[in-house]
Amino acid sequence: MIHLSVNINKIATLRNSRGGNHPDLLHFAKLVLGAGAHGITVHPREDERHIRKSDVFALKNFLQEYDVSGNTKVEYNIEGEPSPRFLDLVLEAGPDQVTLVPVTPGEITSDHGFNLKTEGESLSPYIKAFRKAGIRVSLFVETDLENLKYVQSTEAHRVEFYTGPYAEAYDSSPEKGKKSFELYKVAAESLVGKGIGINAGHDLDQFNLSVFSKLPGLQEVSIGHRLISYALEVGIKDSIRAYLKALSPNP
């Protein structure tokens, strides 16, 4: 089963645009999980333009108390840049997974993965600290095979493939999307069997997941912007269900 972790940054963006607590982040987290999602993802940026530091801990408390029938584990994934600020926040919050993402000042959203050949050594102290705390570590990467050779040496548990280029290709045409997917397939195959888990995220949706869900070794997708955008049309529950269906296509 491929797990769906829903990034709720956009709900916080809408709330912050007006002030107050509408929409309520915890209420939407409950709706997301009630519709069948397996986890919650947040990216608390330093400027707090969407997720605030207080949200990180409010969500942690909410997820600890959330009653899931069948005792299914709800996972909490926190994304962010390798920095002392982020390190302290994650260690205090104690999520199930931390996804380290390269952040460029002023960027609108994450748009590239780590160059592990040049940045791997600087990531090491953060990975070691998170592992010591019992937190699974994932690294945001692209499909370059030479770069992926360095994944094992970082001692990260997983990678998360940046799927922006794939989504853009698929938007152009499904055939171009399928050609782009082949790059991800080869990249994933280079990691399968090496004890490295595979996640993916960025602009995946209920259409392009019909192809991407077949990625070898794929364990989790983290999706926010397009899922919430689709929810504006059909509602959050139906949006979640459409994504879950796309992740589990009929044979």
Rank of each mutant, 00 (worst) to 15 (best):
G177I: 13
E65C: 06
Y184T: 05
E160M: 15
H22Y: 15
T154H: 10
L215D: 05
G193T: 06
E233I: 14
S213L: 02
V90W: 11
S5V: 08
Y126P: 09
V98M: 08
G36E: 11
N208M: 10
I11F: 10
I198K: 05
P165A: 01
Y243A: 06
V32H: 13
N7W: 12
E48L: 11
S180F: 01
T163G: 09
I78G: 04
V221S: 05
Y166W: 00
R18E: 02
V74H: 07
K185H: 11
F62P: 04
G134E: 04
V74A: 11
L244N: 06
V56D: 11
D171L: 05
L87D: 14
E107K: 04
D111W: 00
S239K: 03
L100H: 09
I51M: 03
F161I: 08
I135Q: 13
V186A: 06
S229V: 01
A156L: 12
N21I: 10
V32Y: 13
K214S: 10
L25S: 08
Q97R: 15
Y184M: 02
S54M: 09
I236E: 14
A58G: 06
G39K: 00
R85F: 14
D47W: 00
S17N: 10
G134V: 09
F130K: 12
T143W: 10
P44V: 13
Y126S: 14
V32C: 12
P23S: 13
K128Y: 14
N7Y: 10
L145S: 01
I127F: 09
A156T: 13
L59N: 07
V42R: 09
S222W: 14
Q152L: 15
D67C: 11
V6A: 03
D205R: 04
S222F: 11
S83F: 01
L145V: 00
H50G: 04
G94H: 15
L4F: 14
I2N: 11
K30F: 02
F212H: 09
F212Y: 15
Y166F: 14
I228S: 01
H112W: 01
K30L: 02
E65Q: 14
V211N: 07
E48N: 12
S69F: 12
R131W: 00
L89G: 05
A37Y: 06
Y243H: 15
P23Y: 10
S248V: 00
S5K: 03
L89R: 10
F212V: 14
Y166R: 00
R136D: 09
A242W: 03
L191C: 12
Y76E: 06
G217S: 03
S173V: 02
L209G: 11
G224K: 07
V211R: 03
L33A: 02
D24M: 07
V151P: 13
A188W: 10
H27R: 15
I78F: 13
E220T: 03
P216E: 12
D88Y: 08
Y66S: 00
F57E: 13
A188S: 12
H202E: 04
V151S: 10
A200L: 07
G113L: 04
G197P: 06
